[in-house]
Amino acid sequence: MDYLVAFLVGGVIVTIGQIIYDSTKLSMGHVMVLFVVGGSVLTALGLYEPLVKLTGAGASLPVSNFGYVLTQGVYEALLESGLPGIFSGVFRLAGGAIAAAIVFGFLFALLFQPRK
């Protein structure tokens, strides 16, 4: 069941992106930025967290989730230490993924050559 929910929700989220991509002149890079910012906004409105809780990977795999984990990190730090915490929390939840992306990106680029 959770697989089906993840499939459907993840599918719907990326389909929104595909429709934006096809019907505008925006590049996929623009759509990614739009999704991340969208994730931050939905988190501020308190909407993204329930979506992740309900649908699991369906909401947490698309890049909009990046906006959610970044925002959630900021929010948690603000809760703990007030305004002085505003910069310290942003990578709290997302740091692992960013570090992984940088390190794997570096290593695989060393190992492989572009081919086609």
Partner: peptide, 19 residues
């Protein structure tokens, strides 16, 4: 880079708003 830049900046603002 743009994804991280816009992500972090929007997250700081959005986190503040949420708080």
């Amino acid at each position: 880079g743009p994804v991280i830049t816009y992500g972090v900046t929007s997250a700081i603002l959005a986190g503040l708003v949420k708080w």
